[in-house]
Design a protein around this nucleic acid. Structure first.
Lengths: 170, 170
DNA sequence: AAAAAATTGTCTACTGGGAAACAATAATGA
DNA sequence: TCATTATTGTTTCCCAGTAGACAATTTTTT
């Protein structure tokens, strides 16, 4: 457990390099680190996302905003940001661009002139109508490397961890 | 299941706003979307990371590089990048900065003059010796909202999904 | 041997996203 | 009422991370 000196280190190293013939990397304690695993899993999952939505030119963030607005019309911009863990500064950019694209409508509520209520336009709803089935199809399958049961369990644990109810009607 | 028209939508909307008294947002189908759940979980997990490592001024990416170099001395820069799903261009910046900080050593191997082998310096090993116990301590607990058993199961599923062996020696 | 193709790290742009300061408004307290 | 404090969205500036082109090498093919 002492800090290795150069000589002893290099010996062990050579042995280990022989054990690493091709692409095999030892993660050590990282393989127990939840954040590390979540980050890699997210990247892998996003790769699958882009595969499924290849034809639609959409990003994960935009899809989530569209879906949440569909489910919560008139939601305040700040609450939308908070619920998606997107910073308000960034949310401003996103929703403004989507407003320019004609997907959402922003309105200052009368009871609070600081705030901004968000609504889907008809074009936005139409976009959701196109995207939602693709998402549903994308999510029916199992995650790569897992069985369907395991995938469901994984999602359940993540929801519990995030305190999210399963609102996907059967 | 048909696309909602404007009028019917706005009625439902008003009802729904009453049902959303404070901070409660309906995620709908998103609550079944693995990528969405993974992203939120990762953000939550990283928040915990920064809490645990508050005193150490380190980022998740730097920690992973240090740990992987500790476990795989002499690994090629490109393989390190690939194993961590970090793009080579970005990995160049990271390792160069860490080289400047005296944490790692980069060397062109004789059998391939394009490549770059990475090693921890003694300072780098010392840094690992400080960080590893903090990481271990950080990972002993359960994820917020989950039991210890559930946390273990979550990690197991993520590792399986990522095809990673558990290399954390008990 | 020579040529073509693939790999490796690096560079230069560019984008997504965050921190911090700000103005406008609302809520709170004296 | 008036002053103070908190909230909401926005702006500006910055940094992590990516895409794509590139030079240097290695590997493969002819």
């Amino acid at each position: 457990m002492s800090a290795p000196d150069g000589a002893a280190g290099s010996v062990a190293v050579d042995d280990q390099r022989k054990d690493r013939p091709d692409g095999l990397v030892h993660f050590g304690p990282l393989s127990e680190a939840l954040g590390f695993l979540l980050r890699l899993a997210q990247l892998k999952s996003f790769a699958g996302f882009f595969r499924s939505f290849e034809a639609e030119d959409i990003r994960p963030g935009e899809l989530t905003v569209l879906m949440v607005l569909h489910e919560n019309p008139g939601i305040r911009q700040g609450m939308l940001a908070k619920s998606l863990s997107i910073k308000r500064a960034h949310m401003t950019k996103m929703v403004r661009q989507m407003e320019d694209e004609g997907l959402i409508l922003r309105r200052v509520p009368e009871d609070d002139k600081r705030a901004m209520e968000l609504w889907l336009t008809e074009a936005g709803e139409a976009r959701v109508a196109v995207l939602a089935p693709i998402l549903a199809e994308h999510e029916t399958g199992a995650a790569a490397g897992l069985s369907l049961t395991e995938t469901a369990e994984l999602k359940r644990l993540l929801r519990k961890m995030l305190n999210i109810r399963n609102g996907a009607g059967g």
